[in-house]
Design a protein around this nucleic acid. Structure first.
Lengths: 121, 121
DNA sequence: GTTATACTGAACCATATGGTTCAGTATATA
DNA sequence: TATATACTGAACCATATGGTTCAGTATAAC
């Protein structure tokens, strides 16, 4: 019954798939920054950085506020919760699946041993 | 000192940014499946599904094995560990950052109150 | 009032993505 | 051996991405 916003997951995983944008998030984790700050830090044009920030903003990972001529970027409040939930849920499925396989293997081993007489745990 | 494989993170977050591929992972969490199985399940062509599976495979999230004419897909062993680690690490930064802001706010409140005479914790 | 700063938007470019169709190849099945 | 199945690869299409340049607008500083 876990309900994910598929569209937002699309947007945020896509946002995370770029090293520059992950870097920006990391940076904003340390301090708020203007578009200019970020553009300089990552050696791309202002316009280029603006685009990255827009992507992060659309994904809800960053919020921005313009005061005077400066747009300040900060981490979004929502912050990776949904993404973490999705991944954790699937890590669960994953390991359940592997445990299951393990059990089958165990069972096979057990039977093999039993056939060879001795019963082991 | 945490070292991520940036290229792989790129690939796997990109792989996760598509709802069909997330569905495939979910499906493979329940049972292994052939390309045909998956293509039918998601109502796209064989060729289309093949591409999705290739993307997941390149990201290391899925492994496949061809026996006879059937290619069986299963979850990769690596399974989201790096992605989970990245996200968890940054959730940490995130909340540290917000705690910090909270502290500043607390401090401001405290001062305000102190100015109004009474000192509160 | 002029100039410098900080951003914004449009347009362009090369490449990638998600999908298709069509034409194979390889392997089972009858 | 003939036929059906399961995949594979090439080619195409529309749209998106990550980047640029260039031409603005708005605000601050002199």
């Amino acid at each position: 019954m876990v309900q994910y916003n598929e569209t937002r997951l699309d947007a945020s995983f896509a946002a995370l798939s770029d090293a520059t944008r992950r870097g920006v998030l990391e940076q904003l984790g340390r301090a708020d920054a203007s578009i200019t700050d970020l553009a300089e830090k990552f050696h791309i044009t202002l316009t280029g950085m603006k685009k990255h920030v827009s992507v992060l903003e659309r994904a809800g990972l960053v919020t921005t506020e313009k005061v005077g001529r400066v747009r300040t970027c900060r981490l979004g409040l929502r912050a990776l919760e949904e993404e973490a939930a999705w991944i954790e849920r699937h890590r669960g499925l994953w390991s359940a699946r592997f445990d299951e396989l393990d059990k089958v293997v165990e069972e096979l081993k057990r039977k093999e041993k039993a056939d060879g007489r001795k019963k082991t745990r």
